[in-house]
């Protein structure tokens, strides 16, 4: 592209309007930024759970394995889930305390599915700092967390100790009287 003529100034009549001249550069810069963002999005989204992980995001569980007064621990999405078959005494004690003073007030009815009070299903991770509470220990016969002494009752509600919230309830549905799907 060797030019033999040295141009001094653009010929008259060409728009030398700074607004018009800068516009193309603004468009180019904006398009470049847009392109970079569009390229960056998949690189960020790939860290989200992949399809095979999502496929395991729900599990089915057979309740007939859990005898009255016992709990079974099931692994769901990498966390323990307590499936507790409550005795009538445990249910009564929980209902009795529905309006007792507690850090995270909740009725027993809000903690189980309607018509199925004997099944208490909670995520077995202490809401304080994440340890797994021990079954049946503590003043209320619910759970006792060995790490810092949080005490949960038979509805999984926090009654004593440093934990701020009740044990979390996972999403679950009854597929039949003896089968649940968690997640």
């Amino acid at each position: 592209m060797a030019n033999t003529v040295v141009e001094t100034s653009p010929p008259a009549g060409h728009g030398d309007d700074p607004n018009r001249r800068d516009f193309i550069h603004i468009v180019a810069a904006t398009a470049a930024v847009g392109g970079v963002v569009a390229f960056a999005w998949p690189l960020i989204d790939e860290m989200n759970p992949s399809a095979d992980v999502l496929a395991l995001s729900s599990i089915e569980f057979d309740l007939s394995k859990v005898t009255v007064g016992q709990q079974v621990v099931v692994k769901w999405q990498g966390k323990p889930v307590f499936v507790r078959h409550r005795t009538p005494k445990e249910i009564a004690e929980a209902v009795h305390d529905d309006h007792a003073p507690m850090k995270d007030p909740a009725t027993d009815a809000s903690r189980h599915k309607p018509g199925k009070p004997e099944w208490l299903i909670v995520i077995g991770v202490c809401t304080h700092l994440g340890c797994v509470p021990n079954f049946g220990l503590g003043d209320y016969g619910g759970w006792l967390c060995p790490c810092h002494g949080s005490v949960y009752d038979t509805a999984g509600r926090i009654r004593k100790g440093p934990a701020p919230l009740n044990l979390f309830l996972p999403d679950y549905t009854f597929l039949s009287d003896t089968k649940i799907k968690v997640g």
Binding site: M1, A2, N3, V5, V6, E7, S9, P10, R21, I24, H25, V27, A28, A31, A32, G35, A38
Partner: peptide, 23 residues
């Protein structure tokens, strides 16, 4: 399509910037 348009825009930007230079 994006790249073709973007190349066009960049080319226009390039020609605008280089207009006054003899090269």
């Amino acid at each position: 399509i994006y790249l073709l348009l973007f190349s066009g825009v960049l080319y226009a930007s390039y020609r605008t910037i280089w207009r006054k230079i003899s090269h």
